[in-house]
Design a protein around this nucleic acid. Structure first.
Lengths: 181, 181
DNA sequence: TGACATGTAAAACGATCGCTTTACATCAAC
DNA sequence: GTTGATGTAAAGCGATCGTTTTACATGTCA
């Protein structure tokens, strides 16, 4: 049980640093010191490990979103991502990167990515509703786009992308309130 | 000369569909009917081909941006991307995907990605200046984030991401004009 | 006509890939 | 005190990888 989590954690780091397909199982396992035997006992295959890494990542990220700051539920999204970023090598959204490399060959990975993005966008919608007093799917998607854009450019431009996106989200929210008071 | 372009075009399609590292040279070449000999004569290595595909993509994209619609230079960005999307399998920005898979092992690929993004953001800044009458780096980055976000989510959500991003960009531009008339 | 660049076809290189297997060590639980 | 789950170490599997090589067919241009 402990090794299983260690392998996942090591693989997460390895995939962040080297990409999903640019690294072999030996190198992945070197991060946790586990043997190949243990990997295949727990995950069945390399692709199975990728799936579990994404699921683990999803749960960890969603746990961070559990608490909602009632004063600024939308802006808080970008602060959370900022904190997350400080603890990880950043190379864009791990789910979208996995999607790009596995969509053509592994349906389960694709499904995990879709699930994650859908749940995340649902969470954004929930926060928009709290901030506005009523649902607003358009604004929610706008904020989703800002979030994804900031995450995508994070590794090239640094944390300023998140600050800029947070400002833009606030501006768009204010524009909504003015036109629909 | 003709085969060289054919190989690049085929590789571009292959990378879009299967990811950068999820496909071997044989499959890449099957798209253009060329032999491995020809590939290595022209590009030296598989990585060399990746570099040339990205450079070709960069030039093609920048060529589309050459003409600027003077009535709506910023909104036109999203229309151009929309048209581009219709002709290609979309799986997120090809440059950022390449960056994710090669950043750790190939400096030349990383450099090409940086160059592309910098030139693209310069172009956005140019268009913002036309629209506003004066430069505005903040607004330019906001629009850049919307563009990247829309591109990243395109394969999951479809072209509506580009329409939403275009609307948001227009809103943010208007907000700027009101607060700095 | 001859030289040269450009191309294909196909076999083979060593390296690495994902994965399996054999053999053995802990260690907690009933 | 035996059992069963969990682990390591290490050799080896066939397949595939990127790459090189040999042999031969074009078409172009001096």
């Amino acid at each position: 049980m402990k090794k299983q989590q260690a392998i996942i954690g090591g693989a997460e780091r390895a995939f962040e640093a080297e990409g999903f397909r640019g690294i072999g199982v030996d190198k992945i396992l070197a991060q946790s010191g586990a043997s190949t035997r243990t990997l295949y006992k727990h995950f069945g295959s390399r692709d199975g490990l990728v799936v579990e890494v994404l699921k683990h990542r999803h749960l960890a990220f969603m746990a961070l979103l559990r608490e909602t700051d009632p004063s600024d539920p939308v802006g808080q999204l970008f602060d959370i991502q900022r904190r997350w970023t400080d603890d990880h090598i950043n190379s864009g959204c791990m789910f979208l990167r996995a999607h790009g490399e596995y969509a053509a060959v592994n349906a389960e990975i694709t499904a995990v990515v879709h699930d994650h993005k859908q749940q995340f966008e649902t969470e954004i919608g929930r926060r928009v509703e709290i901030a506005l007093g009523s649902p607003d799917a358009d604004l929610a998607m706008q904020i989703s786009l800002l979030f994804e854009g900031a995450t995508a450019l994070l590794s090239l431009r640094g944390p300023i992308t998140l600050e800029t996106a947070k400002e833009a989200a606030a501006l768009l929210g204010r524009a909504r309130l003015e036109h629909r008071p």
